[in-house]
Amino acid sequence: MKISPIHLIRSAFDPIGTSVLLTALFGFSAAVVLIILAARDWKLALWTILSFSIVIIIFAMWNSNQTLRLVIRHSGTGASSWRSICAAVLSNGAGAFK
């Protein structure tokens, strides 16, 4: 029986809660305020904030791509849950990302 990778991802992850979103928003806001206070120049602060934001977006896209690739690779092996896929990936060590 072959399990769809999208179905597996949707069933394994719960929706993000409000408290998690508020915590992330507070953390991002605090980082922005600290960067502005440390820079003392709006152009430097803007460039720094944009640079950090771009790096965070690139990292998030790369991480989701790697996760989806692993799920697709192990979905045809009869793995029935996210835990069994993670166990298979962890047993392969760092070679699972190649």
Rank of each mutant, 00 (worst) to 15 (best):
S81G: 10
V20E: 15
S29N: 11
I56Y: 07
I56K: 09
G17L: 14
I54V: 15
I57Q: 08
I54Y: 06
W47H: 04
S81R: 07
S81D: 13
I35P: 01
S80A: 14
L34I: 13
A30K: 08
V20W: 01
L68V: 08
L8P: 01
L44H: 02
A12C: 10
H74E: 15
H74M: 08
T18K: 12
W42Y: 09
L21T: 06
S29M: 12
I57H: 02
A60Q: 11
W47D: 06
A12D: 03
F28C: 06
T18L: 10
M61I: 14
L37H: 02
A39M: 11
I36T: 09
S51V: 06
N63Y: 07
T18D: 12
F59G: 03
K43C: 00
F13P: 01
I36F: 07
A12L: 08
L50H: 00
M61L: 15
L68Q: 06
T77G: 04
A12R: 05
A38N: 12
L21Q: 10
L50P: 00
N63P: 00
S75M: 08
I57F: 10
L68A: 10
I49T: 11
L68R: 10
V20L: 09
R40I: 06
I36E: 09
L44F: 03
G76S: 11
I54D: 00
V32C: 10
G17D: 13
I54C: 09
A24F: 03
Q66E: 11
M61E: 09
F26L: 10
L44N: 05
S80Q: 15
A79Y: 01
L70G: 03
S11A: 13
T48P: 01
S75I: 08
L21C: 08
A30P: 00
K43S: 04
F28T: 08
I16N: 01
Q66W: 05
T23S: 12
A79E: 07
S51N: 01
V55P: 00
T23A: 14
F59P: 00
V20F: 02
W42Q: 08
A31E: 11
L22Y: 01
A31G: 12
D41R: 11
N65P: 00
L22P: 00
L68I: 07
I49D: 03
S51P: 00
W62I: 15
I49A: 02
A24R: 14
S75T: 13
V20Y: 01
W62D: 10
S64D: 14
L21W: 02
S81A: 08
R69C: 04
K43L: 14
T77M: 13
D14C: 07
V32Q: 06
V32H: 01
I72H: 03
I49G: 04
A45L: 06
A45P: 02
L22S: 05
W62Q: 12
S80H: 05
D41G: 05
G27S: 12
A45V: 07
T18I: 12
S53V: 06
N65V: 05
V33W: 09
T18S: 10
S11T: 14
A39C: 11
L34T: 10
T48F: 05
V71C: 08
A79P: 00
R10C: 07
